[in-house]
Design a binder for these strands. Structure first.
Lengths: 334, 334
DNA sequence: CTGAAAGCGCTTACAG
DNA sequence: CTGAAAGCGCTTACAG
């Protein structure tokens, strides 16, 4: 390219980067050469020379009972934001996330990592700690270390669900969580929400029955019926379980009851999920795309920060907000 | 690393690649040094020296009315297969796919491309044609050129749906396709299926009513009711529209009819989709993960093929198979 | 069986 | 304002 433009390789490089002043004529000649050749710098060579790849890795974990569309929201939040900031995204879906992180880090394929679905005791964190590239976590682990962490505030979410029901006059609630094995494999958010809800209920003098529900149909439909049968006086239903939310319309239909007349409902799932299933329930948005976006923004800031001004570790728990779809009301007098 | 092992850089490199015979002692020393340092070759340097990145790009298109879970199936099929073959995957979700393809190709970030959701007249194909890396298409375009193409055989799918119904004795069918604007933006598979179904119906003396349905709830529910109202004598329903399949259980419920007793149903959607929505209808699997897998396998074969033995362009249309879920039967005498 | 050297295509101090 | 040169970390003919 430099030859075509009739200048030296260094001048051409500077003309492209703008890192030193270039005479108008040279600038024009370089621009013409670039245009005529369709020239783009070789990414590998640039990476080698600058130690910057302009790529980030997205470490996704595809768990069998995870709800796929939610995953896609995260992925899109990450790739789109990364691209806006000048980065491409390497999508890593290997089962062994720790090994993949090690491999990609030490081969210096990327400038940073976004870890999705971080568990209570996530084996990837040890590897990330000793990696030479920074990382941002989506999901709050037990040990926060010096990591940048982004998650929905599940404690505030549990409290908010109960408070909203209590304000409306409900005194007996049912909370349906994800299956217990989600907790076992490190999904601590399930407990964080459930514990916060229980505590807040106690403070407010509200009875709260907590259950783990199945993660798929038709089991979760049977579960919901069983829970409702067990507590005929409960007037409010809280759902921290996407399959339960998807199954509920049919269950209510079958039982011949309606929301919010007979039962007030608050869920916790993404707006996108609600749209896909046409769910008519008020819900706290899980904010997947926003979490993905914030994680990338902060990761890139850290990547590009001058080494001398250290960026403080950041834990950002997004406050819950209820998207009102009209599924809550005061309990009906019986 | 070579210094730690006490050998030359070239010997170390050969010891790792195995491209020439190495004495056992040296091999051991190198292995030890690699292990102790956690050494992995620098990807950028290797790419520069070999002109191979061991990365493929996945060009996804996220269309607003596309069903997200299907997308994820493709993505997983691609990333998992690529990894098995020794490649990482760059996920590209930019709106302007042609520009992204141009940028990534000319910067030589990847060894090849997988294009998802290829449309009838896809603007990315011109760029791919003149790219220096090979590509594999998922989705059959109008001009096949010299590309490697993978898709479900939608012509055979349309014929099979009609044949199955005809064999059972149905004489009047309704086909609900994706919305018309899907066709307009290049989703030719909609027409390929519909035309093949119509032709086959004519051959077999079966009446087929073809409609475009909405892509989301609750509109598609209203659409289905309207179609069923318009043709009270139709005994079979063919669905090439995922939203319609998801909405159908409720629609049938409301109308007080059941499948296959009152209405035989055959859909076209992925097994994963069926599981997510607990759909009880027999359907032709759209085989997203298999298409992703086949595309990557062939792409890698082409990447790694010696330049002298040219690989023939391949168009692979996967034959449809009906996953029987018991939603078809002989029509009831009225 | 092993080593010294060239080269991949960039960027960036170093000179002028 | 511009050019000649070194160097990023590998791989691979070329010698021995």
């Amino acid at each position: 390219m430099a030859r075509v433009a009739g200048v030296s390789r260094s001048t051409a490089s500077y003309a492209l980067s703008g890192k030193r002043t270039i005479s108008p004529e040279v600038r024009l000649k370089v621009a013409e050469a670039v245009a005529s050749l369709g020239y783009t710098p070789n990414a590998g060579a640039r990476a080698l020379a600058t130690s910057q790849t302009k790529v980030i890795a997205l470490l996704a974990q595809f768990l069998d009972d995870e709800f796929a569309p939610a995953m896609l929201q995260y992925i899109l939040g990450v790739t789109n934001t990364a691209r806006q900031l000048g980065y491409d995204t390497l999508l890593v879906s290997e089962g062994d996330g720790a090994a993949a992180l090690q491999r990609i880090s030490s081969s210096r394929m990327v400038d940073g990592f976004v870890l999705l679905n971080v568990a209570q005791d996530d084996e990837r964190l040890g590897v990330l700690q000793s990696a030479s590239q920074p990382g941002a976590l989506v999901g709050l682990p037990g040990e926060t270390g010096d990591f940048d962490i982004f998650d929905l505030d599940f404690v505030a979410t549990g409290r908010l669900m109960v408070e909203r029901m209590s304000e409306l006059g409900h005194r007996e609630l049912i909370l349906v969580s994800q299956p217990e094995h989600v907790v076992e494999r490190g999904g601590a958010y399930v407990w964080r929400l459930a514990n916060a809800a229980s505590e807040r209920a106690e403070e407010l003098g509200v009875t709260l029955h907590h259950y783990f529900g199945s993660a798929s149909q038709p089991e979760i439909g049977r579960d919901l019926n069983a829970f409702l049968d067990a507590h005929p006086d409960a007037t409010g239903l809280l759902l921290n379980n996407e399959a339960a939310a998807a199954a509920l319309p049919n269950v209510l239909n079958m039982r011949g009851i309606s929301s919010p007349g007979d039962l007030s409902v608050i869920g916790r799932y993404s707006d996108d999920f609600a749209r896909t299933f046409s769910l008519p329930y008020s819900a706290i948005d899980s904010a997947a795309d926003e979490l993905g976006r914030r994680a990338v923004e902060h990761l890139v800031a850290r990547i590009e920060a001058a080494a001398d001004l250290a960026v403080e570790p950041l834990i950002e728990l997004i406050p819950p907000t209820i998207q009102d779809r009209g599924s809550t009301a005061a309990p009906q007098p019986r």
